[in-house]
């Protein structure tokens, strides 16, 4: 069964260069039978990166994915607190470069209006947007989004392809929050392999809206794959979650870039 991992970082493995880290991650991916990885940031972690740091993070990913073009795709990391620089990065890395998606993390909550030009531009490029979300009883970071924030964004941008990173961590709440928005996909990545997560996502959203991701290298490929391979769901749903949905979502932008699968 083909597997595409929608959510990986250049972290969790030794290596001084982006290429060496991605090589190390791919060795583990090979052991788990994962064909393709979508990669963003991870050589360093910056909650609220300045424009030059953003560029450095994206240069790292560009170097890494250029070394493994048949195995990896890049997502550009941008910061909505720097709109102009973010749009420049989007154009540099996605419109004019090899990257195929957008990563938003914790600099600003995604319900903020400052995201609108970025989301509009990404939508025009047919680039999916992976937005980190979490609902923490221990307290979110100031700019950390919840699935409810993403739902507000989805309402303003119904054509955008939005991926709810981690499905909010507290997935029983996260799934409910995004249920009514058909352009939001649930990302299984990160979080413990809590039994029932995938079953509920398939039941409430439909298998077509559920995506396998790992959050490697901080998370184990194994623990995250188990959410799909261990779930009591039909085999057809498993195939969609592991690769079918990713191919469908990324299909238009890959075609636009002339990537043949």
């Amino acid at each position: 069964m083909e597997i595409w991992d929608l959510h990986c970082h250049l972290s969790g493995v030794p290596g001084d260069t982006p290429e060496s880290r991605l090589a190390a991650i791919l060795r583990y991916a090979d052991r788990m039978g994962i064909a393709r990885l979508c990669v963003c940031m991870g050589m360093q972690w910056n909650y609220d990166p300045k424009p030059e740091t953003m560029r450095q993070e994206n240069d790292d990913v560009l170097r890494a994915i250029r070394a493994y073009p048949d195995r990896t795709f890049g997502f550009v990391y941008i910061n909505p607190n720097h709109t102009t620089a973010s749009l420049q990065e989007l154009n540099r890395c996605v419109r004019d470069g090899p990257m195929v998606g957008v990563k938003l993390w914790v600099a600003e909550r995604c319900s903020a209006r400052s995201l609108d030009p970025i989301i509009a531009a990404a939508t025009e490029l047919e680039a999916p947007i992976l937005q980190h979300t979490w609902i923490k009883i221990t307290g979110n970071l100031p700019g950390e989004s919840t699935p409810l924030d993403l739902a507000l964004l989805a309402r303003r941008h119904p054509r955008a392809i939005l991926i709810c990173g981690h499905t909010g961590g507290d997935w029983e709440v996260g799934i409910r929050a995004i249920r009514g928005h058909s352009n939001i996909y649930a990302d299984l990545a990160g979080g413990d392999p809590a039994a029932g997560f995938t079953e509920m996502a398939v039941r409430e959203l439909g298998a077509e809206r559920v995506l396998y991701g790992s959050d490697a290298g901080g998370r184990s490929f194994a623990s995250q794959l188990a959410k799909v391979l261990g779930a009591a769901i039909p085999e057809s749903a498993r195939r969609l979650i592991l690769a079918g949905n990713a191919k469908r979502i990324l299909g238009p932008i890959l075609e636009r870039k002339g990537v043949r699968l």
Partner: peptide, 18 residues
């Protein structure tokens, strides 16, 4: 940690590492 966790997670961790 089954059944709170998917059993497969632990088993596959043994496969992930050489």
């Amino acid at each position: 940690h089954a059944p709170l966790f998917y059993f497969e997670a632990a088993k596959m961790k043994l496969e992930e590492s050489p």
